[in-house]
């Protein structure tokens, strides 16, 4: 009897949970309808995969000299009436709209075909993924070096590391992004231009800002991880004749990294989310792409939900990957 009541009360609260979730969604939908918002989910896919019609137009006036087909593509050769030059255009075979001997005016459509291209949102997602991945890798490197320098006895190394960590952790990421782009970026790019070298695109300043930011936190985790390993481990390694660095590489670091894996994963999840700030320095990542699409499509509700969902997919995958690594490391 007691057990039965417990079971019923469990299912009661489970249904309360689902009712609350459903209620929230219903409320959302209801208020949106109240302000005459029209949900148009069908419009969303085109921002991910756009099916564009491509027209191949002639840039010259003249006669079609030949159409040769080869492996699904047709090469159309037109003889320019004025210069006598041969102009060649290639289109898919089944898209050809003219035939041999036709007279073509400038601007005439020679063929049309559809091409599937990644939409602006998909490109944004790719940029977010790319920036995050590079920043995670660089962040790990900076963190490892910073963490080792932090526990070093050498004052130059130790104090540089402390200064770096305190500076980065003590200022907002947004400000750091501005400094990287508007201060350091201007300096670097002006210097490069003066020496006749190509400029560094904004993406790399974004990567620099994110990885130095993450590196500081990773450095502190690495330090804590190393210090959490029992002193006996170093002593055992050193007593076998290993040098400090051999003991670090073979004994201490492998154990420390295992231990800091969960907070490290949390930090990288934060990094993916923080990459949404990069829109302010003209990097068209997911959030910026969404903002642009919202301005042109006027479907903010759907798009912002989709945007949040995509971030969730990225962060959740990373979190799953970290859990897999943890299980594997035992």
């Amino acid at each position: 009897m007691q057990q039965l009541t417990e079971k019923y009360s469990y299912y009661f609260w489970v249904s309360v949970f689902f009712l609350m979730m459903f209620g929230l969604l219903a409320l959302m939908y209801y208020s949106a309808t109240n302000i005459d918002y029209v949900w148009r989910w069908y419009r969303i896919p085109q921002y991910f995969i756009s099916n564009e019609t491509i027209e191949v137009c002639s840039e010259v006036q003249g006669e079609v000299t030949s159409i040769t087909e080869k492996a699904g593509t047709a090469s159309i050769v037109i003889t320019d009436d004025y210069t006598g030059n041969l102009e060649t255009y290639t289109v898919p075979t089944d898209a050809v709209l003219i035939s041999d001997g036709d007279f073509i005016s400038m601007g005439d459509v020679l063929g049309t075909f559809k091409e599937v291209r990644p939409g602006i949102m998909l490109l944004g997602l790719w940029i977010t993924l790319k920036v995050s991945m590079i920043s995670i890798i660089v962040g790990i490197l900076i963190g490892l070096i910073g963490g080792l320098a932090r526990i070093s006895d050498n004052p130059a190394l130790k104090w540089s590391s402390i200064t770096y960590i305190e500076l980065i952790r003590g200022s907002p990421l947004l400000v750091q992004i501005f400094i990287w782009y508007f201060v350091l970026g201007t300096l670097i790019n002006t210097m490069l231009t003066r020496n006749g070298l190509p400029q560094v695109p904004p993406l790399w300043f974004g990567v620099a800002a994110l990885s130095t930011f993450t590196g500081a936190y990773v450095a502190e985790m690495v330090r804590a991880g190393i210090q959490s390993i029992d002193k006996g481990q170093t002593e055992a390694a050193r007593s076998l004749g290993m040098t400090y660095s051999q003991a670090m590489v073979h004994i201490i670091m492998p154990q420390a990294l295992r231990r800091i894996l969960p907070p490290l994963a949390g930090q990288f999840i934060s990094l993916i989310k923080d990459s949404s700030l990069l829109g302010i320095i003209a990097i068209r990542e997911l959030t910026k792409a969404t903002r642009e699409v919202v301005t042109s499509s006027l479907q903010p509700f759907e798009l912002w939900f989709i945007c949040a969902l995509l971030y969730l997919v990225l962060t959740f995958s990373l979190s799953m990957f970290a859990q897999y690594l943890e299980r594997k490391a035992g």
Binding site: D230, G232, Q233, E235, A236, A237, R238, S239, L240, G241, M242, T243, I251, P254, Q255, R258
Partner: peptide, 20 residues
């Protein structure tokens, strides 16, 4: 000192085996 330590085996109270 690393050369010397390689010639002197040491056994600790708390074993200090490498757990990984």
């Amino acid at each position: 000192i690393n050369k010397i330590r390689a010639e002197l085996g040491m056994v600790f109270q708390s074993f200090n085996l490498f757990p990984h």
